[in-house]
Design a protein around this nucleic acid. Structure first.
Lengths: 221, 221
DNA sequence: GTATAGTTTGACTAGACCGTCAAACACTAT
DNA sequence: ATAGTGTTTGACGGTCTAGTCAAACTATAC
């Protein structure tokens, strides 16, 4: 159940030390992509490059493996919102948030995929986790929502519903990752150089959201 | 295999006539939410309120049922992009597209969910369908992309990558449906009156995308 | 009524999948 | 070398799931 790995000493098995971690990473991917019911332990074992019974050695059951994975994914999801708090103009705060959030989703894309998968599958565990996190820390977007409200008060930006704005930005950042094959099929740049595509996307998103499409006399950024 | 239903005559079984349709609708929901592997035929049968062997009577195998469902969902996905082609200002075109597309996703929300599910699961059938539709009709967003290009040429809007813009709008419309439980938890209005919430969202999206957040001297819409 | 065609149901089979176990293996300490 | 600890492996059993089948049922046609 535990495999308390190496408190600085060498592993026991041949490449044993990271077996548990490799299983965990593989489970992350498969559960996020297929959901709890759709995932097969054999598939996770293949992805990790190990024999299936090892799954049971490190995590007794599918349920327990899933719960461990879900907890980590949910934490990653929450952490993605911890943007660097900027004090200056909202334009800078927004640009920083978009850049940071998009990078975070890229790095923890399975957390984003898992959120979507579980929302659609209607798993109860997600509701519990959200309620718990909500109660202890408030909405994860809290800081950003407050920044929006301040910017409206200061007059830098038009009045806007902060929750709608947050959802719009989050949608625009997450969606490309949960529809990646389609996006790569529709957009050549995404297929060729995904990093460059994401940078283009950050810039586009900031421009459109902050300045909008309508032609304007003076550009101030 | 067929159950050639009533060419205007009464059904044979008690409420037989629509059994096939009810199975199909139920399969739509479950496959879209859980994916092909995650879906259980028993779950579909329960959703349809029928006994499981009836699934095999009307659609021989899970695979065949899935293919029938997938074809319909993909068609609905494509149709969602058929916005009413406006000739006038781009502002009107954009507003109409957002309104129409959001309504369409609402009505065919399982098509949107299926697209996301299959993208994440990496099913090959989606790639084939996309390639086929792509080859015969071009990108589904073609009309809208061209409208954006014309608006840039005419000077009504700033230069913008039309594909990025389309993805931003589509993301913002689809995402609330694929994360519905979370959205309802984060936004009271979405939980109380979802219709009103969607109208608010349409207005918000147009405002932000077309005019942007930055304060402006003259509003022109 | 009886026959006929289509539909529904419960029971059954084969295979997939999860989970267990005992034996084999690798490595360390004595 | 030997014992001991933790890890890996192949084989096995129970349960779940897809799919089949024959009998029961319903409604119409004769």
């Amino acid at each position: 159940m535990n495999a308390q790995v190496t408190d600085s000493t060498a592993p026991s098995g041949p490449e044993a030390a990271d077996t548990e971690a490799r299983i965990f990473e593989a489970a992350l991917k498969v559960f996020a992509r297929k959901g709890k019911d759709g995932a097969r332990l054999q598939e996770i074992a293949d992805e990790a490059g190990i024999h299936r019974p090892l799954l049971h050695y490190y995590f007794r059951t599918k349920q327990q493996l899933y719960e461990a994975v879900a907890e980590r994914l949910f934490t990653e999801f929450l952490m993605s919102f911890d943007a660097p708090a900027e004090g200056g103009r909202f334009a800078d705060t927004l640009r920083a948030f978009i850049g940071h959030y998009m990078d975070s989703v890229r790095q923890h894309r399975h957390a984003a995929m898992w959120m979507v998968t579980e929302n659609m599958a209607g798993s109860p565990i997600l509701g519990e986790m959200l309620a718990r996190a909500f109660a202890t820390e408030g909405s994860p977007q809290r800081a950003m929502v407050e920044a929006v409200e301040r910017a409206v008060e200061s007059g830098e930006i038009q009045p806007v519903n902060p929750r709608q704005l947050m959802l719009t930005v989050v949608s625009a950042c997450v969606f490309p990752f949960v529809t990646l094959p389609t996006v790569k099929m529709m957009n050549p740049l995404a297929a060729e150089d995904f990093d460059a595509y994401l940078e283009e996307r950050k810039a586009h998103l900031f421009e459109v959201v902050y300045h909008g499409l309508a032609s304007r006399e003076v550009s101030d950024a």
